[in-house]
Nucleic acid binder design. Structure first.
Lengths: 242, 242
DNA sequence: GCGCTTAGTTGAACGCGTTCAAAAACGCGA
DNA sequence: TCGCGTTTTTGAACGCGTTCAACTAAGCGC
């Protein structure tokens, strides 16, 4: 199945050019016609390269999705970082992040379903559970670290340490909802964000309460365990490849 | 994409026989060689029917998975219902249910990944979010209702009403973890079950505390909203089909 | 028996993702 | 300029899921 191969070795400038040409063409067509409707042959044709050439740069059709991941993440970073400078409370910052995230994803709504489908597949390089080392996810989580940082909220250290990861998981949940949200302009998703952010804010306050310490500790131990398992799963997968 | 078609009209006894023959053969081969490795041609050949005949009874390869769903659910019911009669506390019952669930799924571990991959796809008949009317899921949720019923735990009505659904979602999460769990004999999953059930039990107690009422109400309103959205998504999908 | 309708069955063909051996283009030292 | 290794490109071919027009078998009224 589709686990990551050896890194495609470096390239000549011309090769680079061809690669981005193929990628741009593909993403364009995905957006227009959807993922399944867009065939590799059609991509190659429109990009004026041979079918085999497309596969020379992208091991499979799924790898084009991964490239989409990369691109979108950078767009989001560029849009989010300045936006949260204005907000001071955790709640306000989180709200901004989530709204902007969905905003930038909206053009790809139809196409995003596939993304989750492949991401749910164990062994896929997109799988959000395995592959602790994946740089995109690392960065994605780091974003939520910055969201919490620069906030005057008093959060216990143990919770503070895991909070970025927890918020990242939360944000994945919202995206999952958004994928299935058929309401006009995805109003429901925005409403869900409003409600859940409010709730999360209250939950964090509650969990920060001293008398919640034992329960919180237990819950955090659990989270840690989940993360460990994810790392192991990733290593196992790598071992299989060789 | 793969939404449910008109119910395949009823059949003659002979047709029924052929259908189950194909299904048995398929599940057998899935278990042996995995889903992707098993081709429709191979299934047809081993069952001594033509390729087209297999498609006459199962609109697509995915529909064989749905049949697997059905079968497994019944096996689980048969194993679980007697088992929980002995337990009285909610915690003990939940523990039993989860352990038996995983137990019966274990032989299909490798193959189960595909199941989740397709289930995550919006528009798939297996999608756990859409299709409120799906009878398997309804029954599956009902099981958790029986888990809560016959327990002396004092749970507020509002929470009590949503609890089966919430536990069902929890159990989906555990299965997702299990799919990715590479540890020997899936020890990690069992450990996770132990810990999460313990935690859940405490959380339910906490949420049942009178002074938690406002927060609980808010959270439950959110859950309700999620369920409504799921129903809408399902209807939207159906409308598309016609 | 005979025609008619419906259920069941067949296998060839199509479309698409993917692979691969071989050709072409390129870079570069001699 | 020529040779040679490397990178890039090509297009035919393979395997598999899926479709479909056509064939057969089974029931049923007459």
């Amino acid at each position: 199945m589709g686990a990551m191969r050896k890194k495609k070795s470096i390239k000549t400038p011309k090769g680079d050019q061809t690669k981005t040409l193929i990628l741009e063409t593909a993403l364009e067509m995905f957006q227009e016609r959807g993922y399944e409707q867009t065939t590799m042959r059609a991509i190659a044709e429109k990009a004026n390269v041979s079918l085999g050439n497309a596969y020379y740069y992208f091991h499979s059709k799924e790898f084009l999705i991964q490239a989409f991941y990369h691109r979108t993440h950078e767009q989001q970073l560029a849009a989010i970082l300045p936006a949260i400078q204005n907000d001071s409370s955790l709640k306000a910052r989180l709200l901004t992040v989530m709204r902007v995230k969905i905003e930038t994803l909206n053009p790809y709504h139809e196409f995003a379903g596939v993304l989750f489908k492949t991401a749910a597949n164990p062994g896929s390089p997109l799988n959000p559970f395995a592959e602790e080392s994946d740089p995109i996810r690392q960065e994605s989580i780091k974003l939520f670290d910055q969201v919490v940082e620069g906030t005057q909220a008093r959060i216990p250290k143990d919770l503070r340490a895991e909070l970025p990861y927890l918020l990242w998981v939360y944000h994945m949940g919202i995206i999952l909802f958004w994928i299935h949200d058929p309401s006009p302009k995805h109003r429901r998703t925005y409403r869900l964000i409003d409600h859940t952010v409010d709730l999360l804010d209250k939950l964090i306050s509650l969990a920060s309460n001293p008398f919640m310490r034992p329960l919180r500790k237990q819950a955090l131990r659990l989270v840690e365990e989940l993360r460990d398992a994810a790392t192991d799963a990733r290593n196992e997968n790598n071992a299989d490849q060789n």
